[in-house]
Design a binder for these strands. Structure first.
Lengths: 233, 233
DNA sequence: TAGTGGTCTAGACCACCGG
DNA sequence: CGGTGGTCTAGACCACTAT
């Protein structure tokens, strides 16, 4: 007698993955229908569906109703990043966290911020510049703009006790978040605040969040020399 | 009579999400069992399961057998990045792609590369330095190490016709991929190759791939000034 | 060891979209 | 309009792990 093995969706996924890697299906090729794969492998269609969902999430295949499942023609490396709140990040590395409010002002969004949020009308904002510290030394310098239309109550918050970073994460959930990463050269002011040399190469994380269509905040986080961002283990 | 609505897993997800945002469940709190939620909302347990899977993927809750579902106590911003092959990236931006092999040599892995791959024994590697061009101008400078044990056939490949980047992606699938992002200051050699000024701040993407436990390649991709990496739309 | 999430199945119906 | 993937259901059993 033949032993019937119980396939898990991971087995099915690996089977299909292997078929693609081996060249049986090349970029752009159409795979069999889920139902056929299920019959071939002797499992339920929903198991194939689960496997395909994973392959689709990881960017290996593309699925369309009626169009079927195709091997992605232009391969991509897809990765997931976790960006914790800064206090947590410092503590995780064994540092003692501190922060310092540098400047706080109310003004209309400048053109660059309007562009970031796709705004066409003047928009009142709270601008907050703050320094995150690790063991008392500068760690990240953040320049943040917060929408006073979407988050009016931030006006009454004491941002010297709790950083704007933390207050917002805990109090203002968002729907949409855009990130961008790039490098800048420290100008004299940044160098002064971070206690580094002018001209040093600094890694920057820019984060913008919305709730539905309403802008919440945009922040430019300037890290100190040597900072690295890693993908989720 | 009461109309019975058919709930989708997205509805269930949003319902739970809303309950968390509203403060009904705070960080660290335990949510009801899937079965109870299903009964409350009048849907199948598997629908709740699907909703929870999504919330878990997005980092909002953590689930454990027997331990139940809890709201994550330390919130994170989780984002997904797509990194295309460089040729594709250049073409997508409307540029004409080109590349240029700068140096190619065979040698044992230096300590830094051994550390990256967690190697303890000497390991023969192919080192490839190449320049990616957009409209004939330097775009990305890559310094790559390829394992000759895992990928011996790369020795016979003409890397002037097709970039190592592209050849590897198309021919050597990987299981595991680590990425790291940081900034460096251009030294004179890099500045010379990229035709920029010495000292310019440059954004760097470092990518390391394995198949199972075997190292495939590690590459430091040094971008040109102004380069930005964005999260997936 | 008992409670909880994880998964598989078989069947049904729906939603999208290519021909 | 018909084919394909997407989802829901009800039920069963399994696999972790907190207690």
């Amino acid at each position: 007698m033949t032993t019937t093995i119980r396939l898990s969706w991971r087995d099915v996924r690996d089977e299909i993955h292997e078929a693609i890697l081996s060249g049986r299906y090349g970029p752009g090729d159409r795979l069999p229908r889920d139902a056929d794969i299920a019959q071939d492998l002797n499992c339920a269609r929903s198991t194939v569906q689960r496997a395909m969902q994973d392959l689709s999430d990881s960017g290996l295949v593309e699925r369309r109703r009626k169009g079927g499942t195709r091997v992605r023609s232009e391969p991509v490396t897809r990765a997931t990043l976790d960006i914790p709140i800064t206090r947590r990040e410092v503590e995780q590395k064994g540092g003692r966290y501190g922060h310092q409010l540098i400047r706080r002002s109310t003004t209309d969004a400048p053109r660059s911020v309007m562009a970031t949020f796709e705004l066409t009308e003047p928009h009142p904002m709270l601008r907050v510049e703050a320094l995150h510290l690790s063991d008392g030394r500068p760690y990240i310098l953040e320049d943040r703009w917060i929408s006073l239309e979407t988050v009016p109550e931030v006006s009454g918050v004491d941002l010297t006790t709790q950083s704007a970073n933390e207050w917002l994460v805990l109090n203002r959930p968002y729907n949409r978040c855009d990130l961008r990463f790039y490098a800048i050269s420290a100008n004299s002011r940044v160098a002064d605040l971070l206690q580094i040399e002018t001209g040093a190469a600094l890694f920057v994380v820019e984060r913008t969040t919305w709730i539905d269509k309403a802008p919440i905040t945009t922040v430019q986080a300037i890290t100190t020399p040597g900072y690295q961002l890693l993908t989720r283990s």
